[in-house]
Structure formats: C-alpha cells, structure tokens
C-alpha cells in the first residue's frame, strides 16, 4: 500500500505533468490558425463530465467501479486540472456576455466550493478528534436534549432542595438559551473558546451569591456546560463538513446544463472557425 504522503507526491507529479502537457499543447496549438478553444472546450467538457460522474459512482456502490478513494483522488486532481484547462479555454481573459459570464460564475462556484470542500475535509476531521466526544451527527439533538434534561433536573432540584431561586434565575437568564440547541456556530468553526469562557466567567461571578449546596450544583452545571459546548463544537464542524456539498453538487448540475448549451451555441455560431 502506497503511503498517503507518497501518493500525494505521485499525484502532484502526475498533475504537474498533465498541466504542463495542457499548457504546452495550448502553446503549440495557439500557433495554429484554428482557435484552440474548441479543443480545450471539448476536453474541459469531458473532464467536467468525468468529474461529475463521481457523484454517479457514489450511488453505484455495489458495482466494481474502482474504490471511491481512487475516484476522489482523480476527482481532486482532475478538478485542479480543469482549472488549468478552464484558464486555457478562456485564454486568460474574463469572458464577456451574460451567458458566458454566468457559465464562468458557475464554474467558479463549483471549482472553489470544491477547493474549499477539500480544505474543509482535510482540516476539520483532525479538529473533531481533539475536542469533545465523537458523536454521530444525527444524534446530536438527542444528546443536547439529554444534557438539557440533566441541567434542568439540577435546576429543578435546586428549587425543591434548597428552596432558593438563585440558580433557576441564573439558568433562565443566562443558560436556557445556550442549552436549547446548537449555539456559537461561527466561534466553534474558528475554534474560539470565548463562548465557553464567557459562560463560565459569568457563572463564577455569580458563585459568591450561592450557598454550599448550590455551589455543588453549579459545579455539575459547569461540567454540563463544557459537555454542551463540546457538543456544539462537534455540531458546528460536522455541519460544515456536510453542508459545503450544498454548493458543490447542485451547481455542478447547473454547470453541466449550461455547458451543454454553451457547447451547442459555440458550434452553431462558430462561423466556420472550428
């Protein structure tokens, strides 16, 4: 089994080679009187279809079509290659015209969402293991509820046992919102511990108003805040891992549809230059 690092170098090498071949072919063909855009366009179109085919491959899990990881490697480096081809296809210009501009825009959405997705896919998993319990995304609401129930039991216990309302008041005022659902998405995405520190700071500043029993309860609440915060962290990162595809996949289909029209239009209106 080739190590991942070796595979990366290998793939980068192949990518660099292909990119060089594309640029060299472009350089050579641009000497020709024929426009290069038809050759580069068809190649790009084929490549985009091949890249989009990864989505189809993912549905056909039960056929021997090669492992998904191999496909992803081809998808990633093919995607990068498509950018080289795209630049060559538009001949280093920004296309004008509404249709072509929207085609370009679609390509950029798909390409950059893919690039971003790749970055996310590589950066976030390691962060997920560093903090909080690894949980299934679908179960986060369940765990949130469990933590909330626990906290509320403690809070209600305060009322019945200590007959004071300090903790319940504090809970309603400062904590209920926090425990109700996923919070602090952006802070977690950018790995800020500010929300947790703020909450804990607030609790600690209230601690002097509490008696001994209440302080014990607060200690348990603090543990639950940390647990909920970790869960939020998991939620924010796992949500991001799932949702970037909302940009990548739908616009791929739009891109393919637009590109078909573009292709037909380009040929019909070439005026014989193809």
């Amino acid at each position: 089994m080739r190590s991942l690092a070796a595979r990366r170098w290998y793939s980068l090498g192949v990518f660099a080679l292909l990119a060089a071949v594309i640029l060299a072919l472009y350089a050579i063909l641009s000497f020709s009187i024929h426009p290069t855009s038809f050759a580069s366009g068809w190649t790009l179109w084929g490549l985009i279809l091949a890249l989009a085919a990864y989505n189809v491959r993912k549905r056909l899990t039960f056929l021997p079509l090669g492992s998904s990881s191999k496909w992803l490697q081809v998808h990633i480096y093919g995607g990068l290659l498509s950018f080289v081809l795209f630049i060559v296809h538009v001949e280093f210009r920004v296309p004008s015209g509404a249709f072509e501009l929207s085609l370009t825009l679609l390509y950029f959405i798909v390409f950059f969402s893919g690039l971003g997705g790749l970055a996310i896919s590589r950066a976030i998993p390691a962060r997920l293991t560093t903090r909080g319990e690894e949980v299934l995304f679908e179960r986060i609401p369940k765990f949130t509820k469990r933590i909330r129930d626990d906290v509320e039991n403690i809070v209600l216990g305060c009322i019945s046992e200590t007959q004071t309302t300090a903790i319940p008041e504090f809970y309603v005022e400062h904590l209920k919102h926090f425990f109700d659902g996923p919070r602090h998405f952006w802070q977690h995405l950018f790995q800020s511990s500010r929300p947790r520190n703020d909450l804990l700071g607030e609790i600690r500043s209230h601690e002097r108003f509490l008696n001994k029993d209440e302080r014990a309860a607060v200690q348990r609440i603090i543990d639950l805040i940390c647990a909920k915060d970790d869960l939020d962290h998991q939620y924010a990162l796992q949500w991001t891992l799932k949702v970037w595809l909302f940009a990548h996949i739908p616009f791929t289909y739009a891109l393919v549809i637009f590109s078909v029209f573009h292709l037909v239009l380009a040929h019909a209106f070439a005026g014989g230059s193809e």
Binding site: L106, F246, P250, Y253, A254
Partner: peptide, 11 residues
Amino acid sequence: LFTFTVAVLAL
C-alpha cells in the same frame, strides 16, 4: 431536492 431545484432553474 436543492440539487434538483437548481438544475431545473438552470435548465
């Protein structure tokens, strides 16, 4: 569903 919608809009 979103993919389908975007594709239909594009078409």
